[in-house]
């Protein structure tokens, strides 16, 4: 079995997977990002056999979120950066691994590197490892997200100089201070893009007495969401079910309202960054103060978030190139360097 697995491995690519709460990205060394799909699985319940089967995965399944009939269910198997539904996660990974290995005669058996939140527990890490193995991986390596994000952002992680990275994902925000290929300080808070959406939903319900779905909330955040009061006021027209009348109504929202709505999760992120700076050893703190911190992850795309952090901390804040794919790219780069670099780049289980 071992020999055969190795043989199949010759025909499989090494993969770096950013198994995120919102999106799953797969990076293949020398090929780049080959998959970027929402971490959503649609499950259909077959009434005759009473068996559950996968109806759709990824982009297709995301369209079904909140729009499914009784016998179907669109699930987001990850919550707060960790696995909430083991079997569905396994199915999703299996689907994605097959998707990037299409037109192959042999069943893929790749070496897989999965990024895990630095705050995840051993049980959660084990679950991620097991599900990747269950999805057909030959070997599974784990890397902590701040490390992968910093490598992906192109930060000099192996130098004896402090680098600070803030990775705002869908479920978690990771703050890491790195030096000499190791993590000096890391903190993971369960605030991310999803929390912004939830905050917007509850704000709309509270102030407009209307109920909007997650997809709509996400659209609002992406289009007019802002973390710092700007010069221009943006507006968006949305539709939601009026709670009092029970019928869908349309209403307009502006960016200042959204800023007010997401104030709570924003202050959580700012607080985590401030705590990280507090906990950082002074020498590394000086390096960070000079060079600044780098934002990665989808959350970094929130308008003026860099400005907010810069104002709050008094440090230069930069947004990484292509922040959405930083973690996956960093993981892929670590996978390429697997044999060369010290093992402390990888996280223990």
């Amino acid at each position: 079995m071992f020999g055969f697995g190795r043989l199949r491995g010759v025909f499989s690519n090494d993969l770096s997977i950013d198994l995120g709460t919102a999106n799953t990205l797969i990076y293949i060394p020398r090929q780049g990002i080959v998959l970027n799909e929402p971490s959503v699985v649609a499950i259909r319940l077959d009434h005759t056999t009473n068996e559950k089967m996968v109806a759709a995965v990824g982009e297709e399944a995301k369209l079904m979120l909140g729009r499914t009939p009784g016998n179907m269910e669109a699930i987001r198997p990850l919550k707060d950066g960790v696995i909430a539904n083991f079997t569905v996660t396994e199915k999703m990974l299996q689907h994605f691994i097959h998707k990037v290995h299409e037109n192959r005669f042999l069943k893929p058996s790749p070496r897989v590197l999965v990024c895990v939140p630095c705050g995840s527990t051993q049980v959660e890490r084990r679950a991620i490892k097991e599900s990747a193995l269950g999805a057909g991986a030959r070997e599974v390596y784990l890397i902590e997200e701040p490390m992968a994000a910093a490598i992906g952002a192109g930060m000099p992680v192996s130098e004896p100089s402090g680098s600070m990275v803030v990775d705002i994902g869908g479920g978690t925000t990771e703050v890491g201070v790195l030096s000499l290929s190791g993590i000096v300080y890391s903190e993971s808070i369960r605030i991310g893009g999803d929390r912004f959406d939830e905050a917007i939903i509850s704000y709309v319900r509270r102030n407009y007495g209307s109920l909007i779905g997650e997809a709509t909330a996400e659209r609002i955040k992406q289009e007019i969401g802002s973390a710092y009061p700007g010069n221009e006021l943006l507006e968006i027209e949305v539709r939601g079910r009026n709670l009092a009348e029970g019928v869908p109504r349309s209403f307009a929202l502006n960016s200042n309202e959204i800023l007010e709505a997401i104030q709570e999760p924003l202050s959580g992120i700012v607080g985590a960054v401030k705590i990280a700076l507090e906990q950082t050893p002074p020498e590394l703190g000086a390096d960070i103060a000079e060079k600044g911190m780098v934002l990665t992850g989808g959350g970094a795309l929130l308008r003026d978030l860099d400005r907010l952090l810069s104002e709050e901390t008094g440090l230069p804040v930069m947004i990484a190139e292509d922040p959405l794919t930083c973690v996956a790219r960093g993981g892929g780069r670590a996978l390429e360097m697997m044999d060369e670099v010290s093992p402390d780049l990888f996280s223990a289980e």
Binding site: G154, K291, M318, E321
Partner: peptide, 13 residues
């Protein structure tokens, strides 16, 4: 100037 990743950020800002 420091590493390129930072410089790109400075230029953008």
């Amino acid at each position: 100037l420091p590493a390129s990743a930072f410089v790109c950020g400075y230029i953008r800002n």
